[in-house]
């Protein structure tokens, strides 16, 4: 009888825990939707400027989220362009070329880098700026390029690890077929293994994009500011969505700015959720193609 009571208690506890978690999540996102949805419109993004003129760059936007959205977009494109080749290369090396102790050591370094708080990566970006400022040119300030570089450092270990995992998950039967038919190691890598791992690698890249778009600590140390307009060059200050959310939450001067904060939070949330769902669909695709490969027996 005591056992039965314990069983029931455990079941009751599990349900309560899950319910509390779901209610808390519902409260957070329900609150944001309730406050954010009504303010979502063109005026939120373009303010008093004419949307078409603003998109064409003929009219600056002073009271909307447009510069922050463009800033975040540029930041993400730049950071991912910098990080993807290196991250993929490192992941391929980890999965296909490194062995034994060397692999363990590399893995440890990647884990340490992945576990490093983003504000430390931002601080690292700041030190790079200071060094460049002293050694190269006094004109170098915290800017878009430095932020993108720091964000690239931030997502490097994720990219490497997801690429490594996608390659290592490939069935031995698939892995060995081409070499058995006389393909070289590199032919096997580029013609068989990488195409097989592509959905896994793609979902890793999407997650990295999400991480670049949402991270605030890195960019607040490396050049994001509250009001800059559109960045004129890669070496210029810029606005970004996550930083705007932080700024409006603490410094809002009127209800309109606060509403812009809610709008920005909702847009960022939707972007990240969308990227996450896309990555998930890609990974499902991976398991399906795996299924075909695994089911195929000569």
């Amino acid at each position: 009888m005591k056992e039965k009571g314990l069983d029931r208690l455990l079941v009751f506890y599990a349900w309560t825990a899950a319910l509390v978690l779901l209610l808390a999540v519902l409260a957070v996102f329900g609150f944001l939707l309730q406050r954010g949805l009504p303010v979502l419109n063109l005026k939120l993004i373009f303010g008093n400027a004419d949307p078409l003129a603003a998109l064409g760059g003929r009219q600056p936007v002073f009271d909307g989220l447009y510069p922050a959205i463009v800033g975040t977009l540029m930041l993400v494109v730049l950071a991912v362009t910098l990080a993807v080749p290196v991250g993929l290369g490192a992941g391929i090396y980890l999965a296909e070329y490194s062995r034994g102790r060397q692999r363990a050591l590399l893995g440890l370094f990647f884990d340490i880098l992945a576990g490093t708080p983003s504000i430390i990566v931002g601080l690292f970006g700041l030190t790079i700026t200071i060094f460049l400022h002293r050694c190269l040119s006094a004109q170098i300030q915290p800017c878009l390029l430095i932020s993108a570089l720091s964000l690239a450092f931030l997502v490097l270990p994720y990219l490497a690890r997801t690429t490594q995992a996608a390659l290592e998950e490939i069935e031995p039967a698939v892995r060995l077929t081409a070499p058995a038919l006389g393909a070289s190691r590199r032919q096997n890598l580029f013609l068989v293994l990488l195409p097989q791992a592509l959905p896994g690698i793609g979902s890793g890249i999407l997650l990295a994009i999400g991480r670049c778009a949402e991270d605030t600590a890195v960019i607040m140390l490396t050049g994001a500011v509250a009001a800059a307009g559109l960045p004129r060059s890669l070496l210029d200050h810029y606005e970004a969505l996550p930083f705007s959310i932080y700024y409006y939450s603490s410094q809002y001067a009127n209800p309109e700015e606060l509403q812009r904060g809610y709008g920005a939070a909702l847009i960022l949330l939707a972007t990240c959720a969308l990227l996450f769902i896309l990555a998930f669909v890609l990974r499902q695709l991976l398991t399906r193609s795996r299924g075909i490969a695994a089911g195929w027996r000569p």
Binding site: G89, Y93, Y97, F109, F110, I120
Partner: peptide, 27 residues
């Protein structure tokens, strides 16, 4: 060339975690 790039990418990014430590210590 590709293999060289893979190796450089792996050790380069691994070295990054040490580089961060070194920069913190210097500054």
């Amino acid at each position: 060339l590709p293999e060289k790039f893979f190796r450089l990418a792996a050790w380069g990014s691994a070295g990054l975690s040490l580089l961060i430590l070194v920069f913190m210590l210097i500054l």
